[in-house]
Design a binder for these strands. Sequence first.
DNA 1: ACCGATAATTAGCTCAGGCTAAATCTCCAA
DNA 2: TTGGAGATTTAGCCTGAGCTAATTATCGGT
Lengths: 229, 229
Amino acid sequence: MCPSVAHEPLTQSVEDYLKAIYRLSLNGQPAATSEIAQHLALAAPSVSGMIKRLSELGLLDHEPYKGVQLTPDGRRLALRMVRRHRILEAYLVAFLGYGWEVVHEEAERLEHAVSDALIERMANALGDPHFDPHGDPIPAADGTIAEVIYTPLSEIASGETVVVRRADTNHADRLRYIASYGLTPGARVTVIDRQPFHGPMTVTVDGKRRVLGDEIARLLLCGRPEASA
Amino acid sequence: MCPSVAHEPLTQSVEDYLKAIYRLSLNGQPAATSEIAQHLALAAPSVSGMIKRLSELGLLDHEPYKGVQLTPDGRRLALRMVRRHRILEAYLVAFLGYGWEVVHEEAERLEHAVSDALIERMANALGDPHFDPHGDPIPAADGTIAEVIYTPLSEIASGETVVVRRADTNHADRLRYIASYGLTPGARVTVIDRQPFHGPMTVTVDGKRRVLGDEIARLLLCGRPEASA
DNA sequence: ACCGATAATTAGCTCAGGCTAAATCTCCAA
DNA sequence: TTGGAGATTTAGCCTGAGCTAATTATCGGT
């Protein structure tokens, strides 16, 4: 009926697609069908079908064979989901004793069920935080979000000291490993040595020497020590 | 495949059916198709279809044209949902400033999304309560539930003093009305006068005189003053 | 004993959202 | 410039869960 208005209640699937597309287009490029499929663990044709429906709803711009981008409406809805997810993560860690490495799955399910009112109550109880436990920025209720640019630890030069700001993964095992080395957001890290060809790097954190593989170092997004988070 | 084992993850619909059937068979009678349909706001044939599937899954005993009853498996799952719902209600009221009259809808959606672990954390934060904000008993994690028998206020004789234990409705407007008279669980009520033919009754609560219609009086389930809740 | 009202079920449809297999497009490299 | 490899879309199917219309069962009352 009304093609571009579209605030009938969204299904869980739609919410997941929007969130995935948001995440995949953070680099400014349109999201590819196969990327979305991979991200959501679905077959590519399922994604093609959903893309068609979401385009008709005015939530996506689809250039066939080229990828999709969120429309302003789509982006607004995606940011709403991101806010929910990150407020939930922060709340569960702060008030219910969840570890930052396991909180993702719980939030993933709850984000579809909570009301806006509950999210705002949780945000309020947390003092309206701007970052979640992984260091990811939390979009404000009005849809604005701090898009801070960080550098992966893997690209920091020997001798430099940086502060970990985000752990860019949802994998519980990697997060647990990272946490066990004290590399949570806020940690001060000094790079002692870097081996070439994506080799391991040696750092000190909390005064302790650690050796990190490239895969992990690439997940740790860092900022300059004076920046506030 | 395995007809009676059935702990594959249930869908939201299935969870709602089980909860409804549980509630409707509290009186010991099997639940009728039309009652279930009414309760869930669905058409009767939809319910017939679901009943067939749930019977095949071993969650219901279905005597065609006679109604359904929960099997032990079905009852276990239903009680799990009831526990989730009531713990959620209690948590939202205790920790997030929700009013008892609005908490039902929020819990209704969340109960399908929370993990068992989160429910147990919430229960723990609440001190493992046995009653929710409406005075309904909360099933224990092991599936046991206190089935206390209360008398509707509408059947209390003149001159008697009772304590409100439960408000037996989910309607926010009725709950709000009841709360505005101070008739929440725990309130001490003395019956001053009863008009015949389901007429209004006069009571005192908190030292104030109130006149209540039969529809409301029937919702207020009461116990003897010495009983603990 | 049967007749009709009411309740329940069956038949047959829709839609969302998955899937696989087949067809089609893009783009790079020879 | 042309041939594929790989990505994408189309075709066609399935399941869950709802609906309406039509059919069938039950049961109370005459």
